[in-house]
């Protein structure tokens, strides 16, 4: 059974072909780490999965829902796919609690009490419950990112996409965010992460996907992939990031 099914995905920006036929199946509960050089198409792949970019060719199916060339209503898509960004993108004019409650109330029509209950639950999960009434500007980067994760979780997505979620953080703040993601993975959340954290990919991911020039160049379980890379490109990439 697959939750996310990508077949022969193509995407170009003008003359530049960024994705040149990507196939990827993700099972429920699986944690997939996508690695690769910048410009290899990994972020574009992620953005196609939630229609922040519209793909030009191929198929994407998530939980039986097909994403066609025609954009799906955002509210439909948000039932299946959540996303966390590199730059957090919290709403600066709203408190932590309001950030988390906004979409359930506005999009799903959940009443305020129920939304508040869910918000407290997910904020507790990421260890940010005591900051319920704080504003994003009063939080550290790591704390903001944890709130952003809680905000995504409040919509109860089936798969959570994480786009370099620790890249904008000071080194000492990376750990707290990775711990939250690790806990989610253990709970059985399906995660697709674009990441530069090789140790995290190695320790937490079920599968690592190496992208190169718009294609999946090599993939496999992390231990094999990192210890015995088959292709020279992956070998070079691993030695460069270590």
């Amino acid at each position: 059974m697959t939750l996310v099914c990508v077949k022969d995905l193509h995407k170009s920006f003008g003359d530049l072909e960024v994705l040149k036929g990507v196939d990827l199946d993700v099972a429920p509960g699986e944690v997939v780490a996508i690695i690769g050089r910048s410009g290899s198409g990994k972020s574009t792949l992620l953005r196609c999965l939630n229609q922040l970019e519209q793909h030009d060719g191929g198929n994407i199916e998530i939980a039986g829902q097909r994403l066609d060339a025609e954009a799906m209503a955002p509210s439909e898509l948000s039932r299946n796919v959540g996303m966390v960004f590199q730059s957090f993108n919290l709403f600066p004019h709203k408190t932590v609690g309001e950030n988390v409650m906004l979409a359930p109330v506005v999009v799903r029509g959940v009443n305020k009490q129920e939304a508040s209950r869910v918000a407290r639950e997910v904020l507790d999960k990421v260890g940010m419950l005591e900051k319920f009434d704080a504003y994003p500007a009063q939080l550290s980067g790591g704390q903001q990112q944890r709130v952003a994760i809680a905000r995504a979780l409040a919509m109860k997505p089936k798969v959570l996409l994480c786009d370099e979620v620790t890249s904008a953080l000071d080194p000492e703040l990376v750990g707290e965010v990775l711990l939250v993601l690790e806990a989610l993975a253990e709970e059985g959340m399906t995660l697709i992460l674009v990441t530069h954290e090789m140790k995290f990919a190695h320790d937490v991911a079920d599968r690592v996907v190496f992208m190169h020039h718009g294609r999946i160049h090599e993939q496999g379980d992390p231990k094999t992939l990192f210890n015995h890379p088959r292709t020279p490109e992956l070998r070079q990439f691993i030695s460069a990031v270590r």
Binding site: N50, L52, P74, S75, E76, L77, S78, R79, V81, G82, M83, F85, S87, N89, L90, F91, L102, A103, V106, V107, R108, A148, R151, A152, M155
Partner: peptide, 11 residues
Amino acid sequence: GQWHASRVLGM
């Protein structure tokens, strides 16, 4: 990013 975040949350 505010547009993207809102869009991804279903708004």
